[in-house]
Write a protein that binds this DNA or RNA. Sequence first.
DNA 1: CGAGGTCTTGATATAACTCAATTTGAGTGG
DNA 2: CCACTCAAATTGAGTTATATCAAGACCTCG
Lengths: 253, 253
Amino acid sequence: MDTSTYINIHNLSRACNECQLQDLCLPLGLSRGDIERLDQIVNRRKPLQRGASLFRQGDRFQALYAVRSGSIKSYATTNSGEEQINAFHLPGEILGLDAIGSGIHPESSVAMETTSICELPFDRLHTLAHEVDGLQRQLLRIMSRELNSDEQFMRLLANRSAEERLASFLLNLASRFELRGYSGQAFNLSMSRSDIGNYLGLAVETVSRLFTRFQQEGLIEVDRKAITLVDRSRMSGLCNLSATASAGEPRHG
Amino acid sequence: MDTSTYINIHNLSRACNECQLQDLCLPLGLSRGDIERLDQIVNRRKPLQRGASLFRQGDRFQALYAVRSGSIKSYATTNSGEEQINAFHLPGEILGLDAIGSGIHPESSVAMETTSICELPFDRLHTLAHEVDGLQRQLLRIMSRELNSDEQFMRLLANRSAEERLASFLLNLASRFELRGYSGQAFNLSMSRSDIGNYLGLAVETVSRLFTRFQQEGLIEVDRKAITLVDRSRMSGLCNLSATASAGEPRHG
DNA sequence: CGAGGTCTTGATATAACTCAATTTGAGTGG
DNA sequence: CCACTCAAATTGAGTTATATCAAGACCTCG
């Protein structure tokens, strides 16, 4: 990999030490010294333009990536050519964990807007994790948390109505923005309606109609990509008050 | 934990070294010596009876568990009291990974039949992973693979028909049985129809009707819990030939 | 042998999809 | 700066897959 692909403008080259995302990202819980060691293996790459891909499905796994600013979507293409979005990644989030097992990326990742990325070469990271206990732990923690949110998401897809899915999605985004110090009250969607539909397992038209309805009901205000959550508590209500539970009774079976 | 809960009948006390599940489980890729070290921290517990729980949602996370024989289902209960099954675990599979992050089990696990389990106290495992490189790697690999299969499952829930879901489910079980040396051609379901429905996001009635239909179409033979896959290739066909893709086009957005 | 749960089957309702048409907006070039 | 183009989003009408409701059959276990 040519070093000319790395640039050094100060906003981008800022070390993990000084990065405001530290508390969300891999360095979390590491000592100052250990963060410095981690920092030494991190490559800070030239920002990706909208639509540019970070890696493609089938690529050999070499590094994990952390989003520094901007946003990324990950999707897989089935053999019949359909694409399914698996995740939207915000600053501080790690990509590529699902490739560790097989050594091959099972999905593609593209920037949804101008996005800068930190690259974490995995073999070096792995070696370092061997020496730095907190790093090993943090890697496991991050993966575990991801398993968790996948499970939650599976539950959402398995038995929630379109309304509940979209409401949950918006609230989830809101809280993630807030964690990062942005407003969860008002924000811009970096993804299209069709991306949202694809991600939530809904038709575009359904998403569009729901936005309209949520607005009519005074839950949100929508202007194109700009969303304002007007009545967040009522919206939370939508996520729990699910339809008459048809679920079986997991006791034994 | 009282040592009287551990028993020593040879089938159960057989060390990792001699365990036929070695190649599916945590020891995979470890040297003989390292397996012995792992073995020393493993507790082999008294088998769980059908319906008995291994841990409950909200319990403090202390150990990972490997299924030795039998099967386990994991489910979470929402605040509105509904239960959602997240996974069925077969021999050689690890449970509890989703609790590492928070230190609390986000789901409950119960035996679907008489089941024996190996307990892997996490702090000891973590310490050992520090010394045994292959173990660290294997832990990450296992979690990564799980992320992967979760993603696949999300895709299934997000845009597949009931037919495709059930077909995929049966084929998935079949290949997992085969990995373990059992027949993938003919096997017994340890879970109820309602568990299957819950897991796949379908009503029990739909599952039942599909079993009937699959049988009528000569794809499978069903007798209560006993399933025989008659035409596996045609069944695989069902999983790809999805309905007219309504998916958006993830390019940028 | 009876009771209670599980499974199946049928009839009906409905949420969400599909298809189709229109509107809106963003980007481009004259 | 305006007209034009193309993609994205919205809106409407009609269809359909699957849920829901209801009833009966079948096991399993005590």
